[in-house]
Design a protein around this nucleic acid. Structure first.
Length: 286
DNA sequence: AAGAGGCCCTGATAGC
DNA sequence: TGCTATCAGGGCCTCT
């Protein structure tokens, strides 16, 4: 499931092949993503040049002249890159059976540089959203997101000002208005490394806890990006390559296994917090 | 009004 | 073997 590191990897791959390219044509095989893909959606993109590709939180942002396209990969969204083999002419009907290939390919973007970008999404939780704005900063939806976890704004002072007692720390880290880009897997891992119990209430966090959390959020994310993201189920970057970070998981998916801290005799526990699988060691995460 | 939980979806796996 | 039940989870939505 794509969290910040996975989305960052996808963005970097896209930069190499799609940046500055023009969208020649779009074929939609399945309009039923989280939000319906309309014919208008396609018309607004055809013949537009991709000026820039960036990432904010878990969103990939395609910059066009005075408009922006946001892509969220949901749970199983993938972008695949194909090189168009010959000069086959694609009819411009809205629905078009390309007779390909894999299941769950929903949208084909044909670029003028010979590449085809394929949006594939098994569970169809992903979505595209379109904004007519001159500047990215005018998109109010993005303003609601909390700071990037790897950015300077995400620091001790910010952390402390934000928390007001209320909820448990795990729910806070999952809250995208607090910090944007963390998902369930990385939150589990971060809490373990920082030795903080996921059920601990925010009002009970001390300065040391907060420092450990901030430090390890940045560390875990950076390490994952270096390792090409995590491959859970079937995350792949657009070239079809898997990531390697999952081999470094210390608690996620490790129910009943011995705690990986050598000095600790605890056993990994699994509970549900807000209906999300939560793995932690009751001995060393206090 | 903040926080908890349901829902969307499909494939893998467990259990009978 | 073949069926059903359960689980996975991001973010939006509803309910309390």
């Amino acid at each position: 499931m794509p969290e910040l590191p996975e989305v960052e990897i996808v963005k970097r791959s896209l930069l190499r092949i799609a940046n500055k390219a023009k969208i020649k044509d779009i074929k939609v095989l399945n309009t039923n993503l989280r939000y319906k893909i309309s014919r208008k959606f396609c018309n607004q993109l055809i013949n537009e040049k991709i000026i820039k590709i960036s990432r904010r939180s878990k969103y990939i942002i395609f910059h066009f002249k005075e408009k922006f396209l946001l892509l969220h990969l949901g749970m199983t969204g993938k972008l695949l890159i194909l090189r168009q083999k010959d000069n086959e002419i694609f009819k411009s009907s809205f629905y078009y059976d390309l007779n390909i290939l894999t299941k769950h390919n929903h949208i084909y973007f044909f670029l003028n540089n010979g590449f085809v970008l394929i949006y594939n999404d098994v569970r169809r939780f992903g979505y595209f959203k379109y904004y007519f704005k001159k500047k990215l900063s005018e998109i109010s939806f993005l303003k609601k997101l909390g700071p990037e976890p790897l950015g300077k704004k995400f620091n001790h002072k910010y952390f402390k000002n934000f928390i007001k007692g209320k909820k448990n720390i795990k729910s806070l880290l999952m809250d995208q208005t607090f910090v944007s880009g963390l998902g369930n897997i990385y939150v589990n891992e971060v809490l373990f490394v920082a030795k903080v119990n996921p059920l601990k209430l925010c009002c009970d966090l001390n300065d040391k806890n907060i420092n450990q959390l901030i430090k390890n959020i940045k560390l875990v994310l950076k390490k994952s990006i270096i390792n090409g993201g995590s491959t859970i189920k079937d995350f792949k970057n657009p070239s079809g390559k898997s990531g390697n970070f999952q081999q470094f998981f210390r608690v996620y998916g490790k129910k009943n296994r011995k705690c990986s801290r050598i000095s600790c005799k605890g056993k990994i526990n699994k509970i549900l917090i807000k209906n999300r699988a939560t793995f932690y060691c009751p001995e060393c995460q206090t």
